[in-house]
Design a protein around this nucleic acid. Sequence first.
DNA 1: ACACCTTCTACTCAATCTGAGCATTAGCCA
DNA 2: TGGCTAATGCTCAGATTGAGTAGAAGGTGT
Lengths: 307, 307
Amino acid sequence: MTTSPVVLGLSAVIVAVTADTPRVLVVGDPPGVPTGRLDPEADRTLERSLRRWVREQTGIDLGYVEQLYTLGDRGRGALSDERLVSVAYLALVRERSPSDEAPARWGDLYDFLPWEDFREGRPSVIPEHVVPALDHWVATGTDGVERAARRERADIMFGQGGATWDGERALERYELLWEAGFVPESGRAPEGGEVHGEPMTLDHRRIVAQALGRVRGKLRYRPVVFELLPETFTLSQLQRVAEALSGVRLHTQNFRRLVDRGGLVEGTGEYDTSTGGRPAELYRFRREVLRERPAPGVGLPGLRTSG
Amino acid sequence: MTTSPVVLGLSAVIVAVTADTPRVLVVGDPPGVPTGRLDPEADRTLERSLRRWVREQTGIDLGYVEQLYTLGDRGRGALSDERLVSVAYLALVRERSPSDEAPARWGDLYDFLPWEDFREGRPSVIPEHVVPALDHWVATGTDGVERAARRERADIMFGQGGATWDGERALERYELLWEAGFVPESGRAPEGGEVHGEPMTLDHRRIVAQALGRVRGKLRYRPVVFELLPETFTLSQLQRVAEALSGVRLHTQNFRRLVDRGGLVEGTGEYDTSTGGRPAELYRFRREVLRERPAPGVGLPGLRTSG
DNA sequence: ACACCTTCTACTCAATCTGAGCATTAGCCA
DNA sequence: TGGCTAATGCTCAGATTGAGTAGAAGGTGT
């Protein structure tokens, strides 16, 4: 009896923001995030391996990279006689085109997860399709206890029934929708036969959801936005990137107060006159803030430890 | 030429808190965290595999489990003809003894990472040994630029030179000490030949440091403390657990205000008279808070988005 | 040149939260 | 009963947050 060999895959959720749109690099059809395999002989570390084959596959040199999660459920992957365990990474880059011959392209992140974008208010897919599907899922619980638990979970995840919507829980929302049979990746036909949000191959949409949740969390307490911005930028640009990722609109004046008086950025004295209104001062990231504050991030609302 | 096979290891940092002491379950000598291997045939998911062999090895049924990190650098592990990739997990349990025949025991987490415990003020190991070692490391930078960068990093990590100490950066601190040759696990003889903090096998102390950082972060915005407490508890008990993990002392009155008025706990009307002073009311975790607040956690100081 | 539009930027203000301290309560023990 | 200890209640100033008003500085079209 031979045991099935373990194969180590590496996946990269490569995120950029163009103007108002958060983007993720995808390959193939149905789309998936770029994927490679660890060469146990050649690659000294997992992250090096990742950077190497992302460069080879897409021509992109990754900057900021962090590990997201390791997926190892049986039955993932194509071949059945091997056990595919994948380490997923999150990478943030300033957008640029993948090299022409590369089969990679930028997709709109919210095309895959349309229920995550609250910038224009609650996205219509929620009341129109998510909520009915969840109601059905709740109703099909085996007993009252399970139905109550399902109701609570659904409410919390989508900010129903008095609960507040929490952008960082993107993964939990996706997993809930999976369980509720709302996403075709689950193998069950979606409620009503309609598909909402573009599916991805295998469990890749789950990974993207997790990446989104992670970025949103990080935004608060680490200056990761600047990985997505040029050296200098206007406060509007900064705000739009923060909004694109967090999925909510921010109060402009307060946002600027927070990043400016919070020491996160400093003015350069130069101006961008192409704003369409009053010229905007160009700012740059203030590295010293790392020394001054334990958890510097852009000011996002909704983190109250009490009340 | 045969490629070296990938072997998937699973490690568990199992944390409990007894009275004032955060504990971690260790095995062997030098101590390490419990470790198993994925059976690609038998184990359906990584987490199931983990729970199974932890139960087998230690008799402990894990409750709260979350994935920490996946380590895959070449040269880890004992055998050289295989590539060991390990997925590390964090588990929180209410303390109980490992089954007698099991070779596992509870160790004091701060015995391994003594520079992380600020409850009695800055631990003496920092001024006496860490700072001199880091000063030496800074001084041995190749040029002025590198020395300045090292100085800044050292200052930020240990709250020197105007920087504020951030408990959540336990991993970064450990990595810094590794680079500085302060920990024997790095393979270099520690500065001065003295060893501070009990070493662990392989890279296990690194994993424990990461686990500590993760718990400290989670404490803020998820009600994980309750995984470590009995069903009902006094607010002092709650505070002591929070302090043990966060590594800092908290202002009692403010702490109680935050958890109580923040809706995290509710009184039971019963009292514990064994306090040595005025009897303390027994509280329980208020599950409803999950619905009411997006990020419920115990009130820890020091998270300021500005200023 | 002028009104007008747009966006950026500067302030204000009330509500709330935070950090710190003082004071009181309620068992236990000699 | 007085003194000890730990729990609990309350106050207060300073900082932060959320929301809004208003002015500044460009462009555009007549």
